[in-house]
Computed example of a mutant assay.
Amino acid sequence: MGTTSSLCGFLANYLFRNCMKVKQHPFKTFVPLSAIPFLTTAVTYKFLVTDPLSSGDLTADMSILRGACVSVLCGVFHPSALAFLKNGRLAVKYETVPLPPRGRSLLHWTILCQSAAKLMVIPMIVQTVYGGHLAFMQHKICERIFEMLEHD
């Protein structure tokens, strides 16, 4: 799941760079936006899904819900927010897009990047399905292990 969230970070960065017409410092944004989501997703999934499943505290429904939530929050929203902020700073620094009026900067940037945000719905759906499926499969594996331990 960490790999797919790093790919989502890469895609979000590409889309927001194109919306904000940022051409400078590609490695300054692409490298962190592929590494940080990977690490965040892997650690969060381990603490919220894998460890409770290993201890037998989660049901199948809760594991699917937690897996889907972790994949959406850490796999799509976190990289999208990072890409929006990093590329917004570069766009302001190099003045690649017109500056927003005072006091309305968030609205200005949101309207400017509306098409990129809409395109991020596709990876969000894929991440949700993938995270839920991965958590369900992991729950089935843990159930089999617990059954084998009970028989011995």
Rank of each mutant, 00 (worst) to 15 (best):
L85K: 12
G103C: 08
H133Q: 08
V76E: 04
C74G: 10
L119I: 06
T50I: 05
M124A: 15
V97N: 01
M124L: 14
T110S: 14
L82G: 15
T128G: 01
R89M: 11
L85P: 00
L90D: 07
V76M: 01
M120Q: 15
V129S: 00
W109D: 05
V121H: 05
L112D: 06
V49W: 00
L90V: 04
L73C: 13
A116H: 13
S54H: 07
V126A: 14
P101L: 04
L134K: 12
F77G: 03
G75E: 11
R102K: 15
T59M: 09
H108W: 15
L134I: 11
V97A: 05
R104D: 12
V121F: 04
T128S: 09
D61V: 08
A81F: 12
K86I: 03
C113H: 08
A116W: 01
P123D: 03
K86G: 04
E95V: 06
A135H: 07
V49T: 00
H133S: 12
F84D: 14
V97W: 05
A81D: 08
A135M: 04
K86M: 10
A68D: 00
L119T: 02
P79D: 14
V49R: 01
D51F: 01
P52W: 02
G88C: 11
L58Q: 06
K86Y: 08
A117R: 09
